[in-house]
Write a protein that binds this DNA or RNA. Structure first.
Length: 545
RNA sequence: GCGCCCGUGGCCUAAUGGAUAGGGCACCAGUCUUCGGAACUGGCUAUUGGUGGUUCGAAUCCACCCGGGCGCACCA
C-alpha cells in the first residue's frame, strides 16, 4: 500500500524540525489540516505556531526557517513532483500547494480502481468487536435503538473500509427480571382473552403486542407454563427481521443465558477475587471499582447470592477479549452513562488496557411530525418504533437522518421532512447528484477514457469539485478519530453541492472532444465517491429517481 | 445534591484548538430553445446563553453562573 501524501509530509516536517534542533520539542500529535479556503493551499500545518512559545521565537520566523528545510527534504522525496509551492501565511501557518499532476493522478486512480482507490489502510488495531442495540427482547425496537443501529452499523462500515476487521454483535439479555415480567404479562393477557377477569399490574408490559403473543402462545406452546421463553423468542424474531429490513446484520447474537450456563461468570469473578479486586461486606461481594476511578465500589454478588447485572457483564467482556478482539466498541443509550466507569473498572481489574474499550453514548432521538413532537412513554407501551419509521420514511432517509448529527447530541427527526422530495431533504440532494451523473454518462457517446487530459479542467467549479473529491479519505479518518460517522453525512452534502454547482455552470457533453472526455472523467470519479459514501451509510444510490 | 449531554441569526444546523463563524429553512429578487429544476445565482439575517481564565489563536479547553434534556439501585 502506497503511503499517503499526508504521512509523507508529516515525516518531512519532522525531519526538518530535527535539522533545526527542535526534534525534542516536536509534539506527538503532529497533524495537518485541510484549509477551508483554497487560498491557503491544499494542506496546512500549524506547527510553527505551536512551537513559538517553547522556542521564544515568532511563529513566522520559525515557519520561514522550517520551510527552507522542508523544501530541501521534499527535493529528495517522491513528493517532489506533486508540490507546487510551500508558503508561510497569516500568523505562521505553513501551507502546501499541490500541483495539477497530483490531482490528475488521484482522479485517475479513483476512476480506474473504483472505491478501492479510495481506501486507506490504517490497520492500527486489527480486530474490532462493535456491540450495539442489544435491546432486551421484551418489546419492539424504539427510535433510540434505531439510532444506535444506524450509527453502529455505519461506524462498522467505515472501520472496515479503513482496514479493520470488524464484527458486529448483539448482546441478548434473555433472562432475568424483565424476561420474567414479560412472561407473566403474556400469561395474564391470555387469561384475559379467555374471559377471566384480571388486574394488570403497572410494571407489566402494557403494549398491544402482548395480546398478539398471548394468542400465538395458545397455538404453539400448550404445555409450558413458562411463557417467558416463548415470548422472548417471538419478540427476538421480530427484532431480527426489523434490523434486517433496516440493513443491519449482526455477525453474532450473544446470549446471557448461555454465558451463565457456561460457568464463565464464576471463573471471571474467581479471577477478580484472586487478584484482590473483590471483597465481602454486609453479606454482599463488591468490586473495588474506586481503584479505577469510579465514585464508589459496586456490588457484584448481592447478599441473597444472586448476581447484579455487572457480574455477567464482566464475564461477557472478558469473553470478548478471549475471543481475541483487541478493540471493543460498545454503543449504549444515555441511560447507561453511569455504568461506564464500573465496566471500565472491571475491564482494567481483569488486566485489560483502558484504551482497548471504547464506550460511545448515543443520545436520544426525538420524533417530530410537521414540527410537532410525538410524545413517548415506554411504560404505557406508547412509543414510535423502528418499524413505524421505516414504513413511513424508508430505509435510506432513516439511516441518513439518524447519522446526521453528532452522536453525542440529541437528534430531532421530522418524519414529514424526511419524506419531502425537496432541497430541504439532504438524502435526496445527495442521491440526486448520483442520478444526474448516471444520466449524463448514459447520454455520453464517448467513453470516459483513462487517457483523458485532466489538465483541461481549469474552471473554478471543476477545481472545487476535484478538491472536494480528494477530501474523502481525510473525512473518513476524522470519523475514525472521533468514533462518530456523522461527519460523512456533512461531507456528502458538500460534495453533492460542489457537483450541482459545477453542473449548473458547465456542460459535460460539448463539441470539444478532449474537454468532454476530461469532464466525463471528472463526473465518473464523482460518481464513485458519492456511491462509496452512500454505501458506507447503507443508503442506496439509484441511477434514476 | 452529584454525574453525563446540549445551548451558534426568527427556526434547524456546520466548523477532529486555526485564517473572514459555513450551510439550509423562511423572506425578497433572479436563472431553463442545451446533459434530469429533487438544481443553480444574488439579497436580508450572528456580541456562538453569560462572566472570567488558559492559549500566539477559543463556538471548541478550564472555572463559575443561567437555561434545556437525561441519569443517579444489593434493577436490567
Amino acid at each position: 500500500m502506497k503511503k499517503n501524501i499526508q504521512d509523507l509530509l508529516v515525516s518531512a516536517i519532522k525531519r526538518s524540525l530535527k535539522d533545526l534542533g527542535l526534534g525534542s520539542v516536536t509534539p506527538q500529535d503532529l497533524y495537518l489540516d485541510l484549509p477551508a479556503d483554497s487560498r491557503f493551499g491544499d494542506i496546512s500545518s500549524n506547527i510553527a505556531l505551536r512551537l513559538s512559545k517553547l522556542t521564544q521565537k515568532s511563529p513566522v520566523q520559525i515557519a520561514q526557517e522550517l520551510i527552507v528545510k522542508i523544501k530541501e527534504h521534499l527535493e529528495k522525496s517522491p513528493l517532489r513532483v506533486y508540490i507546487k509551492e510551500v508558503k508561510c501565511a497569516g500568523a505562521g501557518f505553513i501551507n502546501f500547494y499541490l500541483n495539477e499532476r497530483y490531482f490528475c493522478e488521484q482522479v485517475r486512480e479513483i476512476i480506474s480502481r473504483g472505491s478501492a482507490g479510495l481506501k486507506l489502510n490504517l490497520a492500527k488495531r486489527k480486530r474490532v468487536l462493535i456491540e450495539f442495540v442489544s435491546a432486551n427482547p421484551t418489546g419492539p425496537l424504539s427510535v433510540a435503538h434505531a439510532r444506535q443501529a444506524a450509527v453502529g452499523d455505519i461506524l462498522a462500515n467505515i472501520l472496515e473500509f479503513l482496514g479493520f476487521r470488524v464484527k458486529r454483535e448483539y448482546y441478548l439479555n434473555d433472562e432475568g427480571n424483565q424476561i420474567q415480567i414479560l412472561g407473566k404479562s403474556v400469561e395474564l393477557r391470555l387469561k384475559e382473552l379467555n374471559g377471566e377477569k384480571i388486574e394488570f399490574p403497572e410494571n407489566y408490559y402494557q403494549g398491544e403486542y402482548i395480546y398478539e403473543i398471548a394468542k400465538r402462545s395458545q397455538v404453539t406452546s400448550h404445555k409450558s407454563q413458562d411463557f417467558s421463553e416463548f415470548a422472548a423468542g417471538y419478540i427476538l424474531d421480530i427484532i431480527r427481521k426489523e434490523l434486517g429490513d433496516f440493513g443491519v446484520r449482526f455477525d453474532y447474537w450473544s446470549s446471557q443465558k448461555k454465558l451463565r450456563k457456561s460457568g464463565k461468570i464464576e471463573k471471571a469473578l474467581g479471577l477478580l477475587k484472586k487478584k484482590g479486586f473483590l471483597y465481602e461486606q454486609d453479606g454482599a461481594w463488591w468490586l473495588k471499582s474506586t481503584q479505577f476511578g469510579d465514585d464508589k465500589d459496586r456490588v457484584v454478588i448481592k447478599s441473597d447470592k444472586s448476581y447484579t447485572y455487572l457480574a455477567p457483564d464482566i464475564a461477557y467482556h472478558q469473553e470478548k477479549y478471549q475471543r481475541r478482539f483487541d478493540w471493543l466498541i460498545n454503543l449504549w443509550g444515555p441511560d447507561h452513562h453511569g455504568y461506564i466507569n464500573r465496566l471500565r473498572a472491571a475491564v482494567q481489574a481483569l488486566g485489560y488496557k483502558q484504551e482497548s474499550l471504547s464506550i460511545i453514548i448515543v443520545q436520544l432521538a426525538s420524533i417530530f411530525r410537521e414540527g410537532k413532537s410525538l410524545e413517548m412513554s415506554t411504560r404505557k407501551g406508547q412509543y414510535i418504533t423502528l418499524r413505524e419509521v421505516l414504513d413511513e420514511v424508508g430505509v435510506d432517509a432513516a439511516r441518513f437522518y439518524f447519522a446526521m448529527r453528532r452522536t453525542s447530541s440529541h437528534l430531532d427527526f421530522d418524519l414529514a421532512l424526511a419524506k419531502k422530495h425537496t432541497s430541504e431533504n439532504p438524502v435526496y440532494y445527495v442521491q440526486y447528484a448520483h442520478a444526474r451523473i448516471c444520466s449524463i454518462l448514459g447520454n455520453a457517446k464517448l467513453a470516459a477514457g483513462k487517457c483523458a487530459d485532466l489538465t483541461l479542467l481549469k474552471e473554478k467549479q471543476e477545481l472545487e469539485l476535484i478538491r472536494k473529491l480528494l477530501q474523502f479519505t481525510y473525512i473518513l479518518n476524522i470519523c475514525y478519530n472521533t468514533q462518530d460517522p456523522y461527519m460523512l453525512t456533512v461531507y456528502l452534502q458538500e460534495l453533492a453541492e460542489a457537483f450541482h454547482k459545477f453542473y449548473d455552470q458547465h456542460r459535460v457533453l460539448t463539441e470539444d472532444e478532449n474537454l468532454t472526455k476530461a469532464r466525463l472523467a471528472l463526473i465518473s470519479a464523482t460518481r464513485v465517491v458519492v456511491a462509496c459514501g452512500l454505501d458506507l451509510l447503507g443508503v442506496s444510490h439509484p441511477e434514476k429517481m
